[in-house]
Design a protein around this nucleic acid. Structure first.
Lengths: 249, 249
DNA sequence: TATGATTTGTACGTATGTATC
DNA sequence: AGATACATACGTACAAATCAT
């Protein structure tokens, strides 16, 4: 007996779909790997069976469940990828072993004048030329994240060109003589996805993104990268690395 | 000219409200501290003025904006609280200085048999008696978070009674001889709020919560607390502390 | 003080989507 | 599948409040 709210601007089938999604990710049905019957769900949410059917149909469209006539509704996937965040955060290495394939494509790349927040983060003067890079990552054919990064264009002149030939940001930075860099700041928040992110991550309206706002710097403190990354929240969770028990020794 | 999707299970006014919320938190209107007029917004989202009015009405109910006839619609709050997360995460201390008042109330408190995930986190045997505590925190009269914590009931027998007299978890633990404890693990994810959390945090359906799943332990490694905390995502962001630049020395 | 321009508030009618029975 | 009720969305018109001139 759970609650759905009418006149909330969100249709009942949508609220029920969201709650079933939550229940799945909480592992509620992992013993049988299938949902209860439509009548049982209708009773649980106190709605008509047809409303539950609409909810399940939308989950099936998303690929969260698979419906088989006469047998039941089966859960397709129920675990999130784990993305480790620490002083030594590296995108590909962090997800290694959790996916079969992992790729990244550059969506936009242009030089612009640094807005104040970017200039602050990179310790540049506002208006200084910076490279703005938008990349979308895919794991096993499904979009995972949309990242907007900024780099000092004066220090890394042909960054974009080099990225076409190299595999990763880390490799390109190395070619510029940046042998090592560490995460010095990460802020995490959650939002409804904006329209552009919805499209790039193939999400439907109302979907959630986890946003990380991060600064990477060399060990001497020189700022290297400022990034805003939007992760599809139902596909990933962030695992914070607090360092060793002996306080970083 | 932005996009709203029809027949998506989320009403247009709701999608528009969400997008305006995003725009506000991106600082889009911070020069004037007010929204564009209803007609301008209707043009931007390509909907009727009444649809925009519904969106604004819901934002006004939430306290995000204030409407004044003949003058315009003003933004009430546009910054999120910053909650620092590091090895030494403490709830009250972390938000000190950002709010006028900060309080926490216990919603539930009972002994139960540890489910497997709780037993794992506290390094107990499954089924061992644990204290399950649900607390809701409020900042300046607005709910911030709902936290479910588990403690070893054998080691901390009258924890709940002591908490009624003490101010904080830290104080109660101290009374049990736990002089210090550190965060050894934090996992962060984002979800649609479940019905109970919606109610406790006074959110409307479709609202987002940031979830932190955390383990606190003494410096010798003995587990002290396992917690799942749900933060109202539009009221807070998490600020990860990566330790000192010299790698913890 | 008066007037017009701009902004939000209210009212009516119609069409379509959602949910129940 | 058909009937009913209510929510959502659009269109139009006008009222009320605010502000600049």
């Amino acid at each position: 007996m759970e609650f759905v709210e009418r006149r909330s601007g969100i249709s009942l089938w949508r609220q029920i779909a969201d709650q079933i999604r939550i229940a799945i990710s909480n592992g509620e049905f992992k013993e049988t790997n299938m949902l209860p019957g439509e009548l049982a769900l209708a009773k649980r949410f106190e709605v008509n069976r047809h409303t539950v059917r609409s909810a399940i149909a939308s989950l099936a469209r998303e690929g969260v469940v698979q419906v088989e006539q006469g047998r039941g509704t089966f859960i397709a996937r129920h675990t999130r990828l784990q993305y480790p965040i620490g002083r030594r955060t590296r995108f590909s290495a962090g997800l290694a072993g959790q996916t079969r394939t992992l790729s990244g494509t550059v969506r936009e790349s242009r030089i612009e004048e640094a807005p104040v927040n970017v200039a602050d983060a990179l310790a540049l003067d506002a208006g200084a030329p910076v490279l703005r890079l938008v990349r979308v990552s895919m794991a096993d054919g499904v979009p995972l994240s949309r990242a907007i990064s900024w780099f000092d264009a004066a220090r890394f002149p042909d960054f974009a060109e080099r990225l076409e030939k190299q595999r990763s940001i880390t490799a390109v930075l190395k070619s510029f003589g940046v042998d090592d860099y560490v995460r010095i700041s990460t802020r995490i928040s959650a939002h409804h996805a904006d329209p552009q992110t919805l499209e790039d991550l193939r999400l439907s309206p109302g979907a959630i993104v986890l946003r990380t706002e991060a600064i990477n710097a060399e060990v001497d403190g020189r700022r290297v990268e400022y990034s805003n990354t939007y992760f599809a929240a139902d596909r990933i969770e962030l695992d914070i690395d607090h360092g060793t028990a002996s306080a970083g020794m």
